[in-house]
């Protein structure tokens, strides 16, 4: 039964990937990518990784797809990095792809049985952290440094994105989008979805400590709502050099590092969560992180600043 389910999910996944690669139209490939992202998220559900499924649906498929769709709309001409492939190259590439697939499949089949696992180790300390979702515990406690630096990666990407903008647009806002003004249907949808989405984001954030969900998923949803509002003309895009943008970007890492320092004093180790107040501290840090993530995601999708500010 589960094999059948796996098959019904895996086959469209492969078909989608083949379509994305094979279709001649870039736009069709992009729409295919959205559908692919949806099936990928379902595959993650089937793999019992609901946290990943939410992240994949929101960031991997959703935000990435939106970003690329917008890029496709803005590009005046395609940027080419070489010549179109001839039949020989195609055959060679196909052979290589088949070889890689087979080799990788064989390697996966060669993995040891029973599989080594850290699952038990992740569960044991959960009571001292006051959270029930082991994936959240990995992200915020055991491998907290990874999570902290991953936010820094987002920050670096935002700095990089601004560095790639034009001198003229420095400190300004991204170009409006869509350029011809929003469609009434979109405005209607935005008005309808934004309140509902806000409630759902709050729910996701709160439930993340004990069940699938959490700051990444909630932040992406909030970012998506903000982007929807921008597209519908209901809210402005954030000004990249603005006072509040800078503060919002910095607050996440700063709060995380501050909590780490408190951990030295209260729990004897940097990034340790002192037991009695572990959960409230974690929630506070995750809130701050969520603020940074939302702003970073919106800036990354909206693109580099191109309009001058009136300052």
């Amino acid at each position: 039964m589960t094999e059948l389910l796996a098959l019904t999910l895996a086959l469209p996944l492969l078909a989608g990937a083949l379509f994305i690669v094979a279709t001649a139209s870039t736009r069709a490939a992009l729409f295919g990518f959205f559908a692919f992202g949806l099936f990928l998220a379902l595959a993650w559900v089937a793999l019992d990784a609901v946290d990943v499924a939410l992240t994949e649906a929101a960031i991997g498929g959703g935000a990435t797809g939106l970003l690329l769709l917008r890029l496709n709309g803005r590009m005046r001409h395609p940027v080419s990095l070489g010549e179109p492939a001839g039949p020989r190259l195609k055959i060679a590439a196909g052979l290589l792809a088949a070889l890689v697939t087979l080799a990788l499949g064989a390697l996966l089949l060669a993995l040891p049985e029973p599989a080594p696992s850290l699952a038990a180790a992740t569960v044991e300390p959960l009571p001292t952290l006051g959270i029930g979702n082991p994936v959240a515990a990995v992200l915020i406690a055991y491998r907290a440094l990874d999570t902290l630096l991953e936010i820094v990666v987002l920050l670096i990407a935002v700095v990089g994105l601004r560095a790639l903008g034009t001198d003229r647009g420095w400190g300004g806002r991204p170009v409006p989008w869509p350029e011809g003004g929003p469609s009434p249907a979109l405005v209607f949808l935005a008005r309808l979805l934004i309140p509902a989405g806000l409630v759902f984001a709050a729910y996701l954030f709160w439930v993340g400590a004990d069940a699938p969900g959490g700051k990444f998923q909630a932040s992406t949803l909030l970012a998506a709502l903000w982007l929807l509002a921008i597209m519908a003309g209901l809210a402005p895009a954030p000004s990249s050099g603005g006072r509040w943008t800078g503060r919002a970007l910095a607050i996440g890492p700063l709060a995380f590092i501050a909590a780490g320092a408190i951990g030295i004093a209260a729990a004897g180790s940097f990034l340790a969560w002192p037991e009695p107040v572990a959960k409230p501290m974690i929630i506070a840090v995750e809130l701050a992180l969520a603020v940074s993530i939302v702003v970073a995601l919106v800036l990354l999708v909206a693109g580099p600043p191109e309009r001058e500010t009136g300052r």
Binding site: A17, K90, A93, A97, T101, L104, L108
Partner: peptide, 25 residues
């Protein structure tokens, strides 16, 4: 395992696209 094989195939398909398509997008 089925999803693992699908993952392996995705790597292969993506690699093919990476080689064959000249445009950056």
């Amino acid at each position: 395992t089925l999803f693992g094989l699908a993952g392996a195939a995705l790597v292969g398909i993506g690699l093919f696209g990476l080689i064959v398509h000249p445009t950056a997008l």
